[in-house]
Simulated scan of single mutants.
Amino acid sequence: MEGLALIVIIIAGVILFFTILYFIPVNLWITAQFSGVRVGLFELMFMRLRKVPPSIVVNSLITATKAGLDITTSDLETHYLAGGNVPTVIKALISADKANIRLTFKQATAIDLAGRDVFEAVQISVNPKVINTPEVAAVAADGIQLMAKARVTVRANIAQLVGGAGEETILARVGEGIVTSIGSAAMHTDVLENPDKISKLVLQRGLDAGTAFEILSIDIADVNVGENIGAKLQIDQANADLKVAEAKAEERRAMAVAEEQEMRAKSQEARAKVILAEADVPKALADAFRSGNLGVMDYYKMQNIQADTDMRESISGQGDSGKSSK
């Protein structure tokens, strides 16, 4: 029984020893002491309790101290607990310090927490980045389409990294500037002869305002001639005018047909009235005979006059037809 109790005590002692080593990383403390970083054992233990990896904080603090940066363990712990990337921030601060770029710990942590790669931003500030724009199509005043590509050289603006617009905004603004510059050209040949005019006009617009970058230069990489948009629009307009004219002509023809049908209807109506009136003539003659207002001799005279009139009309019609045949 005494042997079993001794084994249990030894096992418990080993577990306790390794637990203490876990919560109090002595090796890390020794490394920090030899590196000139003053950090206590209990401070390392409290980091464990706060679920902060002591190795990340201490190693980053050693790196910062060797680089001559004035940063405390509390600063690094706070940034880690806020969800930041501590090693990246330290690398960015060291890189900025070596390049004589003003970057404080507060700025670096704010940029990191904003979701941007602060180390990459410092690198772009030191070594400018080239952004290639997609092909931008624009039409000059003479109606010729031009497709242009540009190379935009930018440098990170540290002061605008938090809240500043990104590359997409730069590309959109440069594309808009290219369209405006080409559209203001009187002839497309002017653009082909001097493409640098586009760069100068675009740079004058201050396109990097409110962005996380500073535009250093805009170079037109390629300009190609596209379609004759002006001629195409004129053809489309002519086709549209032709269709309008055809529609109006069809409307006039339909109105003419309607008027002709209306005239025919009126003519037929007039003929019907004449027939009705002629039907009343015999009745009127009979009434005149009965009332004594019309005698037999008067009737014969009227008949002779009517026959003479018909003969004259017949002769006149033959004469007209003879003349037309000649």
Rank of each mutant, 00 (worst) to 15 (best):
P25E: 06
I170Y: 05
V225K: 15
D70K: 15
L192P: 03
P87D: 08
I24M: 08
G166D: 14
V152N: 09
L81F: 10
K273M: 08
D308P: 02
A64G: 06
T169I: 01
K98R: 13
V223T: 08
S35M: 01
A221T: 04
D241I: 08
R38I: 00
G226S: 13
V139T: 08
I94Y: 09
P87C: 08
L4A: 10
I71N: 08
A150Q: 10
V58N: 05
R271Y: 11
I94L: 07
D298I: 00
A96S: 11
R102V: 03
L93K: 10
A254T: 11
L21M: 09
D320R: 14
K326D: 01
D70G: 05
N59Y: 07
S217F: 00
I131L: 11
D142L: 02
A114Y: 06
G166E: 11
F42D: 01
E313K: 15
G322A: 12
F119E: 04
G295E: 10
I215K: 06
N100T: 10
S35N: 05
R312D: 11
L4Q: 13
Q268A: 13
A5G: 08
A114T: 05
A238W: 13
D112N: 13
N27V: 03
V154G: 03
L93A: 06
F42A: 00
Y22M: 06
A288H: 02
S314Y: 13
Q306G: 12
D97S: 13
T31D: 11
T133Y: 06
G166F: 01
T309C: 05
A114D: 09
M187F: 05
T65A: 09
I15M: 11
E269T: 11
G175V: 02
A5R: 14
F105Q: 12
I7V: 09
I275Y: 09
K323E: 07
Q145K: 12
A288M: 02
T109V: 04
A185N: 07
K283E: 04
N157Q: 04
A148I: 01
D75G: 02
T88P: 04
I218R: 07
D287W: 05
G226M: 12
R252A: 05
Y300H: 12
A172C: 04
L61W: 01
V225C: 07
K129S: 01
S55Q: 14
Q237Y: 14
A307L: 13
L76D: 04
S55Y: 12
R312P: 00
I56W: 14
N293C: 00
A288Y: 01
G166K: 14
V139K: 09
R48T: 00
V8P: 03
Q160N: 14
A82V: 03
I215W: 02
I56P: 12
L146A: 04
G3A: 11
V8E: 12
G166Y: 10
L93F: 10
